[in-house]
Structure formats: C-alpha cells, structure tokens
Design a protein around this nucleic acid. Sequence first.
DNA 1: CGCTAAGGTCAACGGCGTTGGCATAAGGAG
DNA 2: CTCCTTATGCCAACGCCGTTGACCTTAGCG
Lengths: 237, 237
Amino acid sequence: MPKAVVPEEKRRRRRSTRAGTVLSEQLIVEAALRLLREHGSTGLTARRLGLALDCDPSTLYRYFRGMDEIILAIGDALIGQALRGWSPSGEWRADLRALGLRIHAAYIAHPQAAVLTTSRVTGRANELAADEAVLAVLHSAGLPAPETVRVYHAFIDQTLAFAALDAASLALPNAALRAEEVVWRSTYARLPATSHPHVAGVAPLLAAEMVTSAYPAALDLLLDGIAARSAAVRGRG
Amino acid sequence: MPKAVVPEEKRRRRRSTRAGTVLSEQLIVEAALRLLREHGSTGLTARRLGLALDCDPSTLYRYFRGMDEIILAIGDALIGQALRGWSPSGEWRADLRALGLRIHAAYIAHPQAAVLTTSRVTGRANELAADEAVLAVLHSAGLPAPETVRVYHAFIDQTLAFAALDAASLALPNAALRAEEVVWRSTYARLPATSHPHVAGVAPLLAAEMVTSAYPAALDLLLDGIAARSAAVRGRG
DNA sequence: CGCTAAGGTCAACGGCGTTGGCATAAGGAG
DNA sequence: CTCCTTATGCCAACGCCGTTGACCTTAGCG
C-alpha cells in the first residue's frame, strides 16, 4: 500500500488499467457520483467503483487514502459547483437569499452524495470562499460584529442542515419513499379529530406542504428576523 | 427465520439465552444505545449487539425484521423522551421555543443514535403527538391556516435538521473531531486579510461561536419572523 | 402429560473495506 | 537506445458485516 498517496498535480507516470483507461481523481469522483445516483447513498462501494472504472478496487488506494477521502472529494466538488458564477448584487437580503438557495440547490442536485457529505467540514478552498462571501454580505447589513457572527452561524448551519434533511428524503430508496408517502396519505390524512384535532384540521394542507422543501420558507423567516434586528440597530444608532 | 416477527405485547413463551438472560425489545434498544455511545454511530452491528446481550446475532431477528427496524425503534424511543412531562403554558412563543429546544436536546443527548434516526419518518405515536402539539401552539398565534402549515413545516424541519447536523458533529470519532478543531484554529484563524478580509476580521469571534450549536439562535430568528407576521395579521385583521 | 411452535443456536453465504506482495511499464539518466 | 527506479496497476487474503435456513429445546396450552 502507498504510505502516502501521490497528490494529483505530481502525477507523472500514468499507466492504463487492463481496460486501457487512464485514471485520475476527477474520473473517480465522476464515477462515484454516477454510482451514487444509480444505486443510492449506500451504493458507493470500492468494489462497485472498481467495476465501473474497470480497475481493481485496490487501485483506488493509489489515489485516495480510503473510501472516506473519496467522499470528502465529492463534497468538495459539490460546494464548488454551488458558487460557480455567483457575484454579489450589493443588496444584502437578495444576496443572502441567493447564496442560501444556491448552496441548497447544489446539494439537492446530488441527493445521494449530499447525504454523505453535508455534515463534513473540510476547510478547503471552496468552503472558505463561501464563508467569506456570506460574511461580506452580512457586513453590509450593518449589524455589530458579535451579532454578525451569530447570524452567520445560524444562516450557514441552517442551509447545510436543510440540505442534509431534504437530501435524505430525496435519497431514500424507492421502497422507503413510497412507505413515507403512504404514511402521509393514510396515517396523517385519516387521523381522528378527537385525538388530534389540529392535525386533522389542516390535513389536506399538510399533505400538500410536506412533500416540498421547507428551506425557502425557513430562509425567508430567518431573513425577516435579521431584517428586524438590522432595522432595530439602525433605529438605535 | 420468522416470516413475521411476534409483536412485543403478544409474547408468551420467553426462553432465556444460554447466558440465562431473558430478552425483550426494550432490552435490545437499551443495549443498542449503549453500543452506539461507546463505539460511535457505525458501532452498532448485529454481532456486537449479540455479544453485548450474550446471545446469537440471529436471535435479534425474532424481535426485529432487521437492523433497520432496530434503528427505527431507537428513534421512536428518543422522540418519546423529548415530550415526556411537557405541557403548554398558553404563550405561543415560549411554548414553541420550549418544544424546539426539548426535541433538539433529546436527540443531542444521544448523538450517535440521532445520526441514524433524525431523518426518518415513522408516523408512530410519539411523532404524531409532537406534531399535534406544535400545530396546537401555532393555532394560538393567530395565523391563517395556510400560513400556519407553512410555518409548522419550517419549524419542525428546522428542529430536526439542526438536531441532525449538531448530532453529526458530536458523533464524530475523536480523531475526526480533533481534525475539525485544528481546521478552525489553524486554517480559519490564520486566514490572510488580503484574500479573506471578512473572515479574518471576525476570526476570534468565529472560533468561539462555531463550537456551539446555532440552533437556539436560528430558532429565535425564526420566532422573530413568525412574530412579525403574527403582528402584521393582527394589525390588518 | 404430551404436542406444538416460539424462540433459542449454529453454520454458511455473499458482500464489504482494506492490505501486503508482486508484476510491469513509464520516463528520466547516461 | 538502453537501463534503472519506482509509480501504479493487479491479485489474493483477512476480518468484518447483515442475513438466512436448518436445527434443537423447552415453555405453556389442551
């Protein structure tokens, strides 16, 4: 086994596999994303990856220290996509909203991958860029520094948390997904008004609401909260 | 293998294992929680559970259809703990805040278990009771029904999503946890002001803030948002 | 008291991540 | 053009995993 994996930019000798293809980190990550989409969030295995790339599973260890490092590389790719092409407009509320929706959307576009990566912190370039962008936008809202940091934390964690939660629903195997739908349509819709009056009272609305993501609504509520504090600060100051 | 697992309340014959202990669903769930706490969120395996209970792993299949059903039973137990002893005060904001913090706390008390269960919907009794409680509280805030449902969704998903995210951090293996700490103290704290001025500007505040949960702050912002809308409705109505 | 079947045990299957040893060919040095 | 080094591929194996089918034993009912 390699004591240390050769970093991608230092690779000189590129042998081809028995099938003739030449491997690379990028190729592996792309294959992994494909496997995840096709086989679900538990469908990414070294053996399957080897099968998809037509190489021996152990070959992967020449590129990554283990399966976990492959997962981190996938997460890095996702967060990179989120901010690609974004630039601030100068209006803090619109910018914060756009940032949140973009990050959320990037994860949701690959739900099975998101499930594995959303709660991992890497400290890599794309993550840092996102944090800087959010703090820059908040700066323009005019809050004092401690409040800014608190709001930043709430905003970024809420975004990641909802991405993880929504991804988990989307990534459920079909069988489990239908089981959940059945729960909503049968259990919740037929709940007797005597025992659960409030649920029963809004059951049809619930059935329609719960199949969508609550993130946009939660984001807007959060932004309302920030706006209220920002206004209060300006009123005092 | 049993075609159908005998439900707990119908069990008559209770043989003891070779070790003399008599099994039950509750005993198994308790052992599972212990294993999770001791060995991390990936440390719950049928073989280990058998070892802990001093029985053959296959015996577990007399009580649960598989590992996944054991995980659901664990989740059910957690959400049961969250609401035990709670009762509404009548003041919607205080009640909603208490409910959110209680559910969050119940999951956080068992982070390794929470990681496995937070994003699962079971439609079981405790889950329904929690939903009814939240809707009842929101009803007293005086929002129109569609708005109530939207706010309910945002509230409950925010709570579960943060519980999952925070649990994931707490449940990290010690090695990974220290690695993340190092990222915060080294990467973020030493970021040059030229490339990341806003991060650099609040770096010390960040280091202190990011090791805590953002849920209370995010919850308060959400409540602020709800209060603003509730006030607007009352102003119009 | 004797029968039935619930609930225990055992052995085995196929799959997993990971590793050490080995073969081979890429690419620099002369 | 040839030789040497070593990066990078492959193979076989280890010890886990969840799950299953066959078997045995004993609790509890008639």
